[in-house]
Design a protein around this nucleic acid. Structure first.
Lengths: 332, 332
DNA sequence: GTGAAAGCGCTAACAC
DNA sequence: GTGTTAGCGCTTTCAC
């Protein structure tokens, strides 16, 4: 049913390798234009497509990339994925999609699968605790791995300047006059969460202050809501800052339930400026946050993977003052 | 560096085919347990993984699936993708991710790429106008294609009961007393949009009424906003219904800009109940909508692809009354 | 129960 | 300029 290179060769009255040369643009100049034309015609006539498996076996290269993220339905990771996919497409690479569902076991199985697929590179956003053995197997085989968003010892990473940005955010809030600030952080084993917390504390420390309260969430709407409710019911604070926007929305929701107006009674800030992209102009009140260039992070990570660059990269973020902090509102 | 099946065989003191038999669980019973054990030990010792390209070339099967959607960062398609990915993972299939970015040309190139990859099946959410030749090439080669969400002549599809559900939504709104209803539909060349509009019109017709106004949007927040603004500035309506939730959010935004309270001055409804999942409990006012089981659609489509079922399937939706229609509010 | 040998479809030396 | 040949790593008859 499907034509092979031999059939194309016969059809064109040449040898298989000549067809191969045409296909791969080898020695294109040293070939009689007429021969090339005959081959091309045969290819069209038989609707010939090379069998990738044979090419890969022979060439010992797959031109395949693996994308392994914790949750593809999270817009943050979807944007990252799209960044990788777009570069892969431009460069003629194929991208495998893997969703670890935040589970280290599933992640480990996918890593082994990617190994078996002979991918040339893996873009990984690791779960909190990636399987060391699975990671080692990739390293042993020389499979390039680049991390996006989150660090892990021994691997290059493309990330945001979370710590510095978070410090700026802290200084911004202090400048607005907030004094008793609570922080709802992301999971302790995720570098992103850690950096943001650390940067925020830097800002407070430099001002001779401390966090009024600290809770650990899981970067979900629900956890932001729960943590904020606890804080609001038990403590006196004038602002709550969350480790990402999703949790910040949970905070806003909790404030609403407690009958607190934002920013009148409570200042609220988040981080990443991502989950609400389509609604950015709709959500009220607009969140004070830090914009993380996630799509660009994905593209840059893919580029480095394909270009064989081994270093890490830290991308710049932007503070986005919203309407959830006093000064913005009074300034309007 | 990497071990081959021959090296494993030598290490175990057997022939390559014996290793292959162990690997593929062939004739496992007719094999001396001791031999099998030796082979297994050799596999472990050399950290052997079969080369997928060689297996595929030999077996003439790839166990690969293609996922081609218009925009992976749209939660609707991300949920669909995740549904497919989860089934693929369970069944030991690999999934290629392709994002057509709503562009027919890019879609066509991806279709050809999937053909070249010898995928065993393609889950396609087509752009408005898929390239007929590219589709034909897949068909000629006998590549299984299943559509999700949107229909296309000649291909099986897994979709929602859009028309019936939209009719129910229409009846619901009429029952609440809305009389002058405007409709913001999705793109004319997308069956989903068409069905929802048709179903809504069915409801009105049965009640002896007609749409007060009709606009065509593009399923984006922005287009919903634009269409609603035009409607509100030029016409007298008491409700605006959008073809999906994203546009409905745009409608809500436009209502806010016009100083209209919802549902006091204007009733608003959407369709799909998807884009706002994380914020479902946060968004105010809550949208009246129809829940579409997108993730399940993805899973079911993948199952049918893998099980070789050729028929179409229509999944049931659920009406979700929110706070954007009068009765709900007064009922509270 | 296990081995020998052929061949999946392609590409890259090496001939001529 | 183009053809011949070998072989990538695996599976699968067919022997024995």
């Amino acid at each position: 049913m499907r034509a092979t290179i031999r059939e194309v060769a016969e059809h064109a009255g040449v040898a298989p390798c000549t067809v191969s040369r045409v296909l791969n643009d080898h020695a294109a100049d040293h070939m009689r234009p007429e021969t090339k034309e005959r081959v091309l015609a045969a290819i069209r006539a038989l609707d010939y497509t090379p069998v990738k498996a044979a090419q890969r076996l022979r060439r010992q290269r797959t031109h395949v990339l693996g994308i392994l993220v914790p949750d593809i339905t999270n817009l943050y990771f979807a944007l990252l994925t799209r960044g990788v996919e777009s570069v892969a497409f431009e460069r003629g690479y194929t991208a495998l999609i893997c969703d670890s569902n935040h589970e280290p076991e599933r992640e480990a199985r996918y890593l082994d699968m990617l190994l078996a697929e002979d991918v040339e590179g893996v873009l990984l956003v690791p779960t909190g605790r990636p399987d060391a053995r699975a990671m080692q197997r990739l390293a042993d085989r020389g499979v390039r791995v680049i991390l996006a968003d989150r660090r892990l010892d021994g691997f290059p990473v493309v990330e945001a300047d979370n710590r510095a940005a978070s410090q700026r955010l802290g200084e911004h809030l202090l400048g607005l006059g907030y004094a008793r600030i609570a922080y709802v952080a992301g999971p302790a084993d995720v570098s992103t969460a850690e950096d943001r917390l650390r940067g925020f504390r830097d800002a407070l420390r430099h001002a001779g202050k401390k966090l009024a309260s600290l809770r650990l969430g899981t970067f979900t709407f629900e956890s932001g809501f729960q943590c904020a409710r606890e804080i609001l019911q038990r403590e006196e604070v004038d602002a709550i800052v969350a480790g990402n926007d999703l949790m910040a929305f949970g905070v806003l929701r909790a404030a609403e339930e407690e009958g607190l107006s934002v920013p009148g009674d409570l200042g609220v800030a988040g981080f990443d400026h991502v989950p609400h992209v389509p609604y950015a102009t709709f959500l009220r009140p607009e969140l004070t946050t830090v914009e993380v260039p996630v799509h660009e992070m994905g593209r840059e990570a893919a580029r480095r993977l394909l270009d064989g660059e081994d270093g890490s990269l830290r991308l710049t973020t932007t503070l986005v003052p919203g309407g959830t902090c006093i000064a913005q509102r009074s300034g309007k």
